[in-house]
């Protein structure tokens, strides 16, 4: 992890850990079902116990996403989502609540916007950094430089199949936390979160990870509680997106509050 001043995400997770627990990290796509509602929903997550926000950028070819998130981001695109809305969303959320905000984005939109310009605009909007599901450290040279220059956090993914060398590199280069992919698969709720997650977090610790957060397949407070027993954060996505789709802002607020009962201090 960074030897420099820890970023907002790292600090938030550290504070949760010191309190004897871990962080609840919540994902929602920007622009779903529309831009103002997506901002309201993100604010509602924080007001109901989510510690770190992960806002997803709708993209035409989301290879890591399961059906729930695909449907939501496709609707956001059909409703006219533009890249600049991402910065408006970050700014809008940060004006109302104090939780750190990461953007989760596939790489081509950042590349087309200009990596340095994207980093600068994200920083100016009050964003904490990026989670990059299809950018592996091997291809990340430009992003490493731009995120350093803009003092942004950067979250790379670690998989159960990653070699020890790759995990070490992932830990060295990540800032904020390492995103431990709980299971081999795409996003979406699962009844059981694999034992593979626990093994992967152990391996990440061995590789020197300070903050390892587990995502993919998590949808209940019990799962959050179980994961925070060994990891520093639990990441919930599809379950929140479904709650927003079905119950609006009130629905997603309820779901967040229920998930937050899994964060026992």
């Amino acid at each position: 992890m960074s030897a420099a001043v820890p970023g907002a995400v790292a600090s938030t997770i550290a504070a949760r850990r010191q309190a004897g627990s871990g962080a609840l990290i919540g994902y929602l796509p920007v622009g779903f079902p529309d831009l103002p509602t997506s901002i309201d929903a993100a604010v509602a997550l924080v007001e109901n116990g989510v510690d770190v926000l992960e806002l997803g950028l709708p993209y035409s070819d989301p290879v890591m996403d399961g059906p729930v998130i695909q449907a939501a981001t496709q609707q956001a695109l059909a409703n006219g989502f533009k890249l600049r809305h991402a910065f408006e969303a970050v700014e809008g959320v940060r004006a109302r609540v104090d939780a750190p905000v990461l953007l989760m984005t596939y790489w081509n939109p950042v590349l087309q916007y200009g990596v340095e310009r994207f980093a600068a605009d994200l920083r100016d909007a009050g964003g904490a950094g990026l989670i990059t599901p299809d950018l592996i450290p091997d291809e990340a040279e430009t992003w490493l430089a731009a995120s350093d220059a803009a003092s942004l956090e950067r979250v790379f993914l670690a998989a159960p199949t990653s070699s020890p060398e790759r995990l070490k590199r992932c830990v060295e280069l990540s800032r904020g936390f390492v995103y431990a992919v709980s299971t081999m698969g795409i996003t979406g709720a699962r009844a059981d979160v694999d034992r593979a997650a626990r093994t992967l977090v152990d391996r990440l610790r061995d590789a020197g990870a300070e903050n390892a957060c587990v995502g993919i397949g998590i949808s209940t407070a019990d799962q959050v509680r179980e994961i925070l027993g060994y990891a520093d954060g639990a990441i919930v996505g599809s379950a929140l997106v479904r709650a927003l789709a079905e119950g609006g802002v009130a629905g997603v607020a309820d779901t967040a509050a229920r998930l937050a009962t899994g964060v026992v201090a």
Binding site: W107, I136, A159, V181
Partner: peptide
């Protein structure tokens, strides 16, 4: 060229 893929696929590509 290169590899712009989820980390989960890297081991299989290797």
């Amino acid at each position: 060229g290169g590899r712009y893929v989820p980390e989960s696929l890297v081991a299989a590509l290797d």
